[in-house]
Design a protein around this nucleic acid. Structure first.
Lengths: 171, 171
DNA sequence: TTGACATAGTTAGCTCCCTAATTATAATAG
DNA sequence: CTATTATAATTAGGGAGCTAACTATGTCAA
């Protein structure tokens, strides 16, 4: 997402602000900081998962299946929840099925539909990956107490509400 | 980065926490919230840039060049600053040069080296894009006052410091 | 009942990023 | 000097995601 390593210094920001009076310096620096930290977190997560032979997309699929009481879902529902195109989900499921972590089960009632089911091997994989992930995440977030976490979440919600402004057709 | 649309409910998180005692529920939900908001922001930024025929990678290159007093840099330095591989930078510069926004200038002293220079058209492009970007960003962040922004940045710094824990070889 | 439309999944071809290898040039050690 | 090593940029090939098009099946209204 934001790979930019070289965040602007205060001087740089002010130089830009003097050319572009629309600039809100603290808005920009907070925004970039947020994107940067999130990118670092995402990269760290990728690294953690790759030690277990997984990638984020495939891992989310396993987790979403485990959330279901039947351990089962459909490619379209999974694609919507993971937030990728249905076409991309086909590839993820292919890979997971090849590794024996999920199974495709064809629906007899609606023959267009396919059920994707977490296998025992898939559950076993999660039982190894999740504790590692949770341990690392706990340590990573140890710097923030409960109150800070709640505050952070509130601020994130405010920003997320503002994202609509970013996407408005025209200003 | 994190495309997951379907964040876990409290019940789901607790269900997972009961299977995996390592889980720190507020750490997880704050972490996912952060990734989610950042992803939304990044997507909004992409959409804003794409209205101007740009993408993040190409846009960052233009900005980095504008930061330089000479409006000039090298592919390697740009790659490091943008945070992508040098090979990928070649492609970005190809595209920008094709559109006339930057120029490659071959170095007479060190004939391995190439200078990348922002053209007048490139500066003109930025003069159109940046005000739009800054306006949108200002509105997007309007929900947070200066004090909140400073607090947010502090918390982000704490999390970023914790990222090292996420990446530790073994736990 | 049949013709138009909707839905589920897949395939094909694109983009952007990556790593590894290649080419050309410069710097340095013997 | 010359051979090795280092550096700069590029090319080649791969992965993961996208959109658009396609196949097969289901639904519904004239």
């Amino acid at each position: 997402m934001l790979q930019l390593r070289d965040l602007p210094t205060t001087e740089t920001l002010e130089k830009f602000a003097s050319r572009y009076p629309e600039a809100d310096v603290t808005a920009i620096s907070t925004f970039l900081h947020l994107l940067r930290v999130a990118t670092d977190l995402s990269a760290a997560l990728d690294e953690c998962l790759s030690r277990h032979g997984l990638l984020q997309g495939r891992w989310w699929v396993l987790i979403l299946l485990m959330r279901e009481s039947t351990l089962t879902s459909t490619p379209s529902a999974l694609a919507d929840k993971v937030g990728i195109a249905r076409a991309s989900m086909t590839g993820l499921i292919d890979g997971l099925e090849r590794d024996g972590l999920v199974e495709r089960i064809f629906d007899a009632n609606d023959r267009r539909s396919v059920a994707v089911c977490l296998t025992a091997a898939g559950q076993f994989k999660l039982d190894i990956v999740m504790p590692d992930y949770y341990n690392r995440l706990r340590l990573c977030m140890a710097g923030l107490d409960e109150k800070s976490r709640a505050q952070l979440s509130e601020m994130l919600a405010l920003i997320d509400a503002g994202v609509a402004e970013f996407t408005k057709p025209k200003i």
